[in-house]
């Protein structure tokens, strides 16, 4: 119990004191997971809209694959991305292994199916005739997609939160493709693992608290967006 209080005190100390290393790690976590989530929103929602609005053979199989993708283990993603980005690998020429770009890539691979799968469920949950009703009010294809996304905004923002929550908290992929390099690819989760393995529990706790506050803040912001402008 003392250890937890000590961690909390240390976290405040590091934050209030604006410890440059901790600040850097926190900002990097936010930047990396935020960008990965943004990429996943574009790709995932795009896939969800494409699957929801079109009928094609094999649609059920595609949906099953998207849903399976929601449970991709980060270490498996980390392994595949590492092999692909390896110096002699097919994308080795990019030279991005052990850089933040590699972490963004791996985290986007993790979050995209989450946002696509939950996003598709959100769109499929709308009344099937709503699409016809919107078209019948004279909507173009683009206006149709926009109105459908707006109608499903509650579960869609929940999907975005699930995607962000999935990547800000994962450690397997980040450590494998990033390498936990000090000042370059060290993020909150990898730093926590390292500090706790070294026995620096109060620093590990401090990083964990920062992680929780970060996750809470981002989700509070998204929740505000989600609940905003809904008339009583």
């Amino acid at each position: 119990m003392d250890l937890i209080w000590e961690g909390l005190r240390k976290a405040l100390e590091l934050l209030v004191g604006l410890d440059p290393e901790v600040l850097g790690i926190t900002l990097l976590s936010l930047k990396v997971s935020g960008l990965a989530t943004l990429i996943s929103v574009v790709l995932g929602l795009g896939a969800a809209v494409a699957v929801a609005l079109n009928e094609f053979p094999g649609k059920r199989l595609v949906i099953a694959l998207m849903n399976t993708g929601m449970g991709l283990p980060p270490v498996v993603v980390g392994l595949f991305v590492t092999v692909l980005l390896w110096r002699n690998g097919p994308f080795g020429f990019l030279g991005i292994l052990y850089t933040p770009a590699a972490i963004i890539l791996a985290q986007a691979v993790i979050a995209t199916p989450i946002i696509a799968g939950l996003g598709l469920a959100a769109l499929q949950h709308l009344p099937p005739e709503l699409r016809l009703q919107i078209l019948s009010l004279g909507a173009t294809r683009v206006q149709l997609v926009w109105l459908l996304l707006r109608e499903a905004r509650l579960p869609l923002l929940a999907a975005v939160m699930a995607g962000f929550g999935g990547v800000i908290s994962e450690v397997g992929a980040s450590i494998m493709v990033g390498g936990n390099l000090k000042g370059s690819t060290r993020v909150l989760t990898t730093a926590t693992v390292m500090e706790s393995s070294r026995g620096n529990f109060e620093v590990a706790f401090a990083l964990s608290f920062i992680l929780l506050v970060l996750a809470f803040s981002v989700n509070a912001l998204l929740t505000h967006l989600q609940q905003a402008r809904r008339p009583r």
């Binding site: 005739e129 709503l130 016809l132 009703q133 078209l135 019948s136 008339p231």
Partner: peptide, 19 residues
């Protein structure tokens, strides 16, 4: 598409937007 801007359909379910 142009025709759909001159003709409108109303369904059994009112299908109102959440606003």
């Amino acid at each position: 598409q142009a025709y759909r801007r001159r003709v409108t359909m109303v369904f059994q379910d009112p299908l109102l937007f959440d606003t």
